[in-house]
């Protein structure tokens, strides 16, 4: 007999490998679109900034500023979306008793962090070849902030998938919430330029903190929004994660029951 932990690790490994195949080779050139989506977003926004002759944001190179913010935001959003639909798209796996509802969620979140790491390295290398300074000034700060965003994405996804299962209409609500997140998190315009009291309202959003923190890790003299806090981001992430785990513990059977 295998120990429960050994079973869990075997299941995570199996789902990870299988999801990786699905994510990279599901359709023709699926791997290409993983890279193309952020590249197109970055390209479009960078083009707009160049048109208005903006060279620096808060003392940072505008292209790198956009790249870093966009990648950090995509890390959160992709993890959140993948985890939200983890149980739904893994229904056929639950025939095998070893697979619990939580397993596809964690496997997908870990896979997404791997994929985003690869995508980030590729995009930043290309920017370096174009002559931009992409070396992070404080790599540890950038990594911890990225980890916080990833963890918050996982927690958000866990909570969202349970809510959607209990109240199917929540899917529409959550999609509506996701849409403005791109704009209000400071991906395309610097939140430091927003006047008070609106800035304080926008800074309730932990993703905005995460994005500013990742940028602070990259640029040595970056003018971040005052009051940016790593603790604030991590508290949100941990609370969301535990709330998600709690909901899974309570409603796991409902998630897979017919």
């Amino acid at each position: 007999m295998r120990s429960p932990l050994a079973v869990s690790f075997a299941v995570w490994r199996a789902i990870f490998l299988r999801e990786a195949l699905d994510r990279l080779f599901d359709m023709r050139m699926a791997w290409f679109w993983l890279l193309a989506e952020p590249v197109l977003h970055i390209g479009f926004i960078a083009f707009l900034f160049i048109v208005i002759r903006m060279r620096a944001v808060g003392n940072a190179d505008v292209l790198v500023w956009i790249i870093v913010g966009m990648l950090a935001f995509f890390l959160f959003r992709r993890t959140a979306v993948q985890v939200t639909y983890a149980v739904d798209s893994s229904k056929s796996l639950f025939t095998y008793r070893q697979v619990k509802p939580f397993d596809p969620a964690i496997a997908r979140a870990v896979l997404e962090s791997f994929l985003m790491a690869i995508v980030s390295v590729i995009i930043l290398s290309v920017a370096a070849l174009l002559g931009h300074d992409v070396m992070p000034h404080d790599p540890l700060l950038a990594l911890v902030a990225a980890f916080g965003l990833w963890l918050f994405g996982l927690g958000y996804g866990l909570v969202a998938s349970v809510l959607m299962e209990l109240v199917p209409e929540m899917e529409h609500v959550l999609k509506i919430v996701m849409l403005p997140l791109y704009l209000i998190s400071g991906v395309v315009w610097p939140l430091a330029t927003v006047p008070q009291p609106w800035r304080d309202l926008l800074m309730i959003n932990p993703i905005a903190h995460g994005l500013e923190l990742v940028r602070m890790g990259f640029f040595s003299y970056y003018h971040a929004v005052p009051g940016v806090s790593m603790v604030y981001l991590l508290v949100w992430a941990v609370v969301a994660l535990f709330l998600g785990l709690l909901l899974y513990r309570r409603f796991a059977v409902q998630l897979v029951m017919r």
């Binding site: 295998r2 050994a6 079973v7 075997a10 299941v11 490994r13 199996a14 789902i15 490998l17 299988r18 195949l21 699905d22 599901d26 095998y96 070893q98 697979v99």
Partner: peptide
């Protein structure tokens, strides 16, 4: 359905240790 028979079989083998 999107994976091959072999990939599916591998998954089941891994899950069962």
């Amino acid at each position: 359905p999107t994976l091959t028979g072999r990939q599916n079989a591998k998954f089941v083998c891994r899950v069962h240790g």
